[in-house]
Simulated scan of single mutants.
Amino acid sequence: MKKKTYEELVKESPVTYEMYANMVDDGNRYEISDGVLELMSPSPTSIHQLLSVQIVLRLDASCRNEFIILAAPLDVILSDTEVRQPDLVMIHMSRAHIISNRGINGALDLVVEITSKHSLKRDKLTKRKVYAKYGVHEYWIVDPFNFTLEQYELREHYYELIEVYSGEKPIRSRTAPCISFSMDELVRSLPVPLDQLT
């Protein structure tokens, strides 16, 4: 199969995972949204990456015996025409079989998106609907500007907002009861002063 460029693939519909996996590597990151190839936002900011590392460290410290924790870039193949790259994911050890060399094949236990001004609408609307449709148990949206975490739990095929965490309030999860940290804890652990990042 001849490798196609983004410009060639974006004209095709629907774009499938196989087409996407065989496209020319141009150094950019893409997702497939309902069969449409989409270029992802510009590279994450420093605050995004620093928060991502701190969240992974906390999840790993408390949940590594029960969950596999992975960070982007990584393909989550929800269907042949729905491929996402969340910032962080958690998969219970009992479901490790959904992990393959090409990525994760199927619904996750918990997904974390650290939002940006470029991804806010996508994270809060599009991805929230997609993750619910494909059965992701819990969805977090982390706001690195206000230092809040919105926690959504799956109810049938939609998400219910369970809590908005900020400050010292410990983050708790029914999906992963091993989780326990606060947004202030994350902020205090950043190796660079906040005023340098915001």
Rank of each mutant, 00 (worst) to 15 (best):
Y30P: 07
T16S: 15
Y17I: 06
L154Y: 02
P177M: 15
V15E: 08
H137T: 14
P42V: 05
V83Y: 03
S13H: 10
A132R: 04
M40R: 10
M90L: 02
Y139L: 10
Q49W: 04
I98Y: 09
F147Q: 06
I104Q: 00
Y17G: 04
K2Y: 12
G135V: 03
N65D: 11
E160H: 12
L51R: 02
L190Y: 06
F67P: 00
A176T: 11
T81R: 08
V164G: 02
T81G: 12
L51C: 10
E31R: 06
R58M: 07
E12K: 14
R102M: 08
R122G: 02
V192H: 08
L190G: 10
Y134F: 12
F67C: 00
L161F: 01
R174F: 13
P144D: 02
L59V: 01
L51N: 01
Q54T: 14
L39V: 09
S41W: 07
S62P: 05
K11W: 05
R58D: 02
F147M: 10
E7A: 05
E7D: 12
S182N: 09
I171M: 04
E163I: 11
Y152A: 00
K169R: 08
C178A: 07
Y152G: 01
V56L: 06
V192N: 04
A72K: 10
D87I: 00
K11Y: 12
R155Y: 08
T175S: 14
E153S: 07
R64W: 13
G167C: 11
E163C: 14
E12I: 13
R29I: 07
W140P: 00
G167V: 09
T16N: 05
